[in-house]
Structures are given as C-alpha cells and as structure tokens.
Nucleic acid binder design. Structure first.
Length: 175
DNA sequence: ATTCTAACA
DNA sequence: TGTTAGTA
C-alpha cells in the first residue's frame, strides 16, 4: 500500500486548493475527488516533497476507507469526532476527509477501547497527551531520537502481533 | 453509490 | 452503539 501520486496544488491566502488531478492509489482502488484545505499555508510544489507533518495532516481518506483501515463503524468514527478526539476536514459537499494522523488517533482509540477504557478515560488520555509539559518534552527530543523511538515502537508493535495486516501496511506511510 | 444528520432503540 | 429515514 502506498501513495502513488497526489497531484499538484497551489496556495491562496490561507487556503490550499488541489488543482489538476488528485488521487491516492491503494491496492485495487483509486480515490478521486475535490477537496479544500485551510489548515496549512504551503508554497507551490509537489506533495511528494512535503514534509512529514504536512503529509500526515493532509485530509485524504473518505470514511469508507477509514472504516476498513480501523475496523471501526461509521457511527463510531463520527461519534469520536463529536467528542473532538479527531477533527477531519470536510469537502465542499460536507464529506469528511481523514488524514493519516486521524487514522492513527482512531487506532489508538480502538486500542484503549479494547483495554476496557471508556470515553471519559480516553478523553483524559488525549488531554494528558496535549498537556504543555508533554508537548515541551516532545519538542526537546531530537529527530534522531524520534526516529529511533518510532522504529522501536514499530518493532514492538510487530512483536505484539496485536494488529492486523492493515496497520503493518500503514507503516509504509511513515518512512 | 456513498455519506450526512437526526432521532430513536 | 446500531439502525433507519430522508438528504445532498
């Protein structure tokens, strides 16, 4: 599973609009559609040259794909949005478009749920994660450390064998 | 065909 | 959370 091509884009004030073709290709499927995005200010360029954070926050996936990726129902996904655990972008037609970060968050939520933690608990976990102290600590980690940590987490996840093929495939998005 | 909101079970 | 109705 990999992103084959996303097309070009340009910036207009605080808005980024996709022009020309925009599509993401997965095995046996191609997603197409228009979308607008107003969360980032980008300069003209190709998506493949975008930095990690931008790639991961870009709204790409419709809810049907996210459902397959996370094994969550549409109802659940929308419910978690209601509780602002995720904030997917919307297309002009009011369709939700999810980022890779959104998918990650949903997978985390699913893990917590499997551990028997309820919504209140999950909210606390995420609130804690966004605490200034934590954020500061994160900022102090060097890139090298971060990559090492991510690699270890990945290996750890593999050892745990707790995830399906889907999450294994997702790892390709993260270098 | 797919997704959305609202509402009720 | 699941489902269903009526839309866009």
């Amino acid at each position: 599973m990999s992103i084959e091509e996303i097309g070009t884009f340009f910036v207009e004030k605080n808005k980024m609009n996709f022009i020309e073709k925009r599509y993401v290709s997965f095995p046996n499927m191609v997603l197409t559609g228009k979308l607008t995005w107003n969360k980032l200010i980008i300069v003209k360029g190709k998506v493949k040259t975008m930095n990690r954070d931008i790639r991961r926050t870009m709204p790409l996936l419709p809810i049907s794909i996210v459902m397959q990726l996370t094994d969550l129902t549409a109802r659940q996904i929308r419910y978690y949005e209601e509780h602002t655990l995720i904030e997917p972008a919307r297309t002009e037609g009011n369709r939700r478009m999810f980022s890779l970060n959104d998918v990650d968050t949903l997978l985390e939520i699913k893990d917590l749920l499997d551990q028997g933690i309820n919504m209140a608990g999950i909210k606390k976990v995420f609130a804690l994660k966004n605490e200034p102290v934590i954020q500061q600590a994160k900022a102090e980690i060097t890139d090298v450390d971060l990559r090492r940590i991510l690699r270890e987490e990945m290996l750890q996840a593999q050892r745990m064998q707790r995830t399906s093929i889907r999450q294994g495939d997702l790892s390709r998005f993260f270098q």
